[in-house]
Simulated assay, not measured.
Amino acid sequence: MHEHQIHVTSGEHVLVGSLLLPEGEGLFPAVLLVPGSGPVNRDSDHPRARLGITRQFAHALAQAGVASLRYDKRGVGASTGDFKSTGLHENADDAGAALAALSARPEVAASAVFLLGHSEGALLAAAVAARGRPVAGVVLISCSAAPGEEVLRWQAAQIAASLPPGVRVLLRLLRTDLVRQVRKNHDRIRATTTDTARIGLVRLNARWTREFMAHDPREDLARIHAPVLAVTGGFDLQVDPAHAEVIAVTVAGPAEAHVVPGVSHVLRSQSGRPSLNSYGKDVRRPVDSRVLGLVTDWVTRHSGSAVDG
C-alpha cells in the first residue's frame, strides 16, 4: 500500500486527507470515505475516542485492490475552518469537493468511484449522490431514513431503556424523563439563530443541529439511481436498524440491505444487551469483520461492471 497526503479545496477552506493506493500499477477503483458526526478526523478518531472506522475501511479496501480517500472534517486535524460553526449542508459541500478531487486523480478509474459514509457521513454521501454526481455506487453504513429530530428522539428512548437498572431508578426518583428533556432541548435549539449556542451546560453547534433536525434523508435517497448498499448493526442505539430496509425500498436504483447481528453503531460486536457504556472498551477491537467483508465484497463486485461499462 502507498499513502499520500492530499489537499482538497472546498469554497474558502482546505481539507487535508489521505489517499491510500493498493499495490500495483494502473487505474484503481476508488472509494471516498466520509466520516461520521462530531469533530472526527480522517480516521474517524474523536478527541475522546479513537474509532478508527474510516481508516480500517481504507485498509480493507486497499487489500482488495481498491483505492480510497479519507479526510479531516472542516476545522478538525489539518483541515481549515471552524468545526463548531459548520452546518450539515456545508459538510455535504465538503464531501462533494472531496469526491471531485478523488475522481480527478490520475491513479483512479473515474468510472469506478464510490461513496461510503458512516452515520452523519452516510447522510452526506446520500446528499452528494442525490445532487447527480456520477458515482458507481453508494455505501451507507448506519444511515438513518427519517427526519433528524425523529432520529434524536428515538435515540433518547433507546439509550434510556439501555441504562443500568440503578440509573433508571435514580432518574425516576429525580423525575427526569430523558425523551421529554430531549424535546425541550430541541425547542430551545430551534429558537436559536446563531451558529453556536449553550444548551444547559453544553456549548453546541446549533446551526448543524437545526439543519440536522430538519433534514429528511428520504428526499435524497429517492434521487439516487446508482447501486446502494445499506448496512446497519443490529445493536445500533443511534440509528434504527429497520432503516436499512427503508433505504433499500426508497432509493431509485438497485439496493441491498443488511442488518448485522450484535453490532453497535461504532461497528463493533457486543455481547448481551446493546449498550453505549462499553464503547470505550469496544473500540480497542477492530471493526467487525462481517461489516468489512460485506463492504469490500460489494465494492469489488460492482467495480468490475463500472470499469467495463
Rank of each mutant, 00 (worst) to 15 (best):
V8I: 15
T9P: 00
G11E: 01
H13G: 00
S37W: 10
N41P: 03
D43K: 05
D43L: 00
S44D: 15
G52Y: 06
F57V: 06
A58S: 14
Q63Y: 07
V66F: 00
R74N: 02
R74Y: 00
N91A: 13
D93K: 02
D94G: 00
G96D: 01
A98W: 02
A98H: 02
L102I: 06
A104I: 01
H118A: 10
G121W: 08
L124V: 05
A127S: 14
V128N: 02
A129K: 10
G132N: 07
V138L: 10
L140A: 09
P147N: 04
V151C: 10
V151F: 06
A157P: 07
L163T: 04
R168G: 04
L171E: 11
T176I: 14
R183W: 04
K184H: 13
R198E: 15
N205C: 01
T209S: 13
P217K: 05
L221C: 06
V231C: 07
G234E: 10
F235K: 09
H243M: 13
I247P: 04
A252W: 03
A252Y: 04
A255W: 05
V266W: 03
S269V: 09
Q270V: 07
N277R: 15
S278L: 13
D282T: 05
R285Q: 14
V287M: 08
D288V: 03
L292T: 01
T296E: 02
V299S: 05
